[in-house]
Design a protein around this nucleic acid. Structure first.
Lengths: 336, 336
DNA sequence: CTGAAAGCGCTTACAG
DNA sequence: CTGAAAGCGCTTACAG
């Protein structure tokens, strides 16, 4: 079934059929009705490939998500899609693996779809040179693009640095002075680097420095990663009283490891997370964590991208406030 | 940049360029080299819309996933994609919301992409009349299509019925005779219905029946759902000793609710889950749950679909074995 | 092995 | 308001 068939069956030309299908006002009511009748009777759907080939135009917003199963990203994605659709942008979502090359994927999409703009979830702007050479607007979510200083690369992030300071201060406040940290590779993950810097700043204020060999354990952002990293920290630091993990998932892995090694949380050792995803409120104990405002990141992220597209504004770098969400995983050990 | 440009720059015709791009053997080495040089120099990507319009053919496998954030489905999806790619089928993944209409989505994709086959993850075959009217092969994963008896609708499922019996038997074995159940609406969710039937069978063997009003609590497959359902069960059944939740996520919600109501798990009350997803091994306590063999479901599912496509085999309904995975969330209360 | 040409299904000036 | 026609970028018989 093609537009030509519809034209034949309705007695009109293909041009008029096309106009009806695209809600072009220059069609008589009579023609519209006759054509819609045939369209509906045949449950006709125009061939999208032909349409795209012909209009050759941008096809909405491309959202590239690095890493599946990331609850934080899923929360942001859902709201972003709604925001874009409310602004009459359709979006297509592309998942790529943790190890895959987002720049190559973006380049492919750029050639194929010519989107109005890109949303990069969890992507490191430094790896996206391709995008900076073009002039299509891009917004990086959870990774700052400020240091790139490219007019088309915006970003929206949580204040990772400030949040880490806040959490470490909180732990010191509760009497913890032997703190281990679990995070990503600061050479590769910008949020890890920012949070680590925040930790270092907070430690300094309390007259300590972080021993990167003993007290910082590298981990993937997974349960298993948090588990293994915790075992390493325990081995190197028998007198640890608290662990700060840079994601809720890693924190849950850490808690599991601690129990398996006979340590109760928080009675024997405290654990803090990062993200404030749903699971942090349902796991046991409930996590003390940094809540990232995914709602705001999604909505402002969409707004910024749309503004860059429509008004050709230069890049915007925005930071979203966080909250320390108290659960039951951190013990107050002052006076013990 | 189009194929025409490449032709001009390389001094060959568009036909030859196209043949090189598609690895057609009828091209001289000389031409291939010359053309590839230009292609690479320009980082040329052919226009996919034009290609699809022209070849007008099937575009691999369409995978429709109902509900985001479903860890079980993500596990299956990842392995399925690998299986299809190894068999040289490309696949495209479509996520739809819990409430969305998968039949409409499938119809749309069918018109637009003409896939060789469909994978429906978490979809109810009874809602997919559209698909049965066509002759494109479909495999339903986690929902049996056996009762549909349509030659193109296959399915691969865990033995939900047997697994529920196994778990209830296990709970009775450990001395539990007051068991509450949390699951989906058996009118809408086929796996819920099958598991509930298994529970009923197991209860009967132990001389009990399930009081659907008091002992079965409806829930969405979410943390929050499990939490609320547990509160209802507690209220209606003060002497409950165990809860069987039909997913790990609901079980974790249940555990949280129990703690919030001053009950320890498993000391005061036992909780069992279903799925055996990664989180079941990291939450606290570790869940006693039914492990679904996602690896096998994915691999056999892909095999079955490919067989139906290539050999035009009639529908196959396959059941995959499960395992009861013992954690620390069920207490042995015999002799207490 | 290669090129010229037809045509996939659509949209959109253009002319009426 | 409507129709005839050009053309989006590609693939593939067809002829050589």
């Amino acid at each position: 079934m093609t537009i030509k068939e519809i034209a034949r069956l309705s007695g009109y030309g293909v041009g008029t059929v096309s106009r009806v299908l695209n809600n072009n006002p220059n069609v008589s009511d009579k023609a519209r009705k006759a054509i819609m009748k045939v369209v509906e009777a045949n449950n006709f759907q125009p061939n999208e490939n032909a349409r795209r080939l012909r209009i050759q135009t941008h096809s909405g917003i491309a959202i590239i998500i690095k890493g599946r199963q990331n609850i934080l990203f899923e929360e942001i994605l859902e709201r972003m899609q709604i925001a874009f659709e409310n602004a009459d942008y359709s979006c297509s979502v592309y998942y790529i693996d943790e190890e895959d090359d987002e720049a190559a994927e973006a380049a492919r999409i750029q050639k194929e779809q010519k989107p109005y703009g890109f949303v990069m979830l969890g992507s490191n702007p430094e790896l996206c040179n391709f995008l900076s050479s073009g002039d299509v607007p891009v917004i990086f979510v959870t990774n700052s693009a400020a240091s790139m200083n490219m007019p088309n690369l915006s970003s929206i992030t949580t204040d990772d640095y400030g949040a880490a300071i806040c959490m470490i201060d909180y732990l010191f406040d509760k009497g913890h002075t032997h703190i281990g940290i679990i995070g990503g590779d600061p050479q590769k993950s910008r949020p890890s680097l920012m949070r680590l810097s925040g930790c270092q700043a907070a430690f300094m204020r309390h007259g300590q420095t972080i021993d990167m060999k003993k007290s910082y354990a590298y981990s993937r952002f997974s349960f298993e990663g948090g588990y293994v990293a915790t075992e390493k920290l325990l081995e190197d630091n028998p007198d640890l009283t608290a662990i700060f993990a840079m994601s809720d998932i890693m924190a849950i892995g850490a808690i599991r490891a601690l129990y398996d090694h006979g340590k109760r949380v928080p009675a024997d050792i405290s654990v803090a997370g990062f993200d404030g995803t749903e699971i942090s409120r349902f796991c046991n104990p409930v996590l003390t964590t940094i809540w990232q405002n995914t709602e705001r990141m999604a909505e402002r992220g969409a707004e910024i991208l749309i503004q860059c597209i429509e008004e050709e504004t230069p890049a915007i770098y925005e930071t979203v406030p966080f909250n320390l969400q108290e659960g039951g995983s951190v013990h107050d050990i002052r006076g013990l």
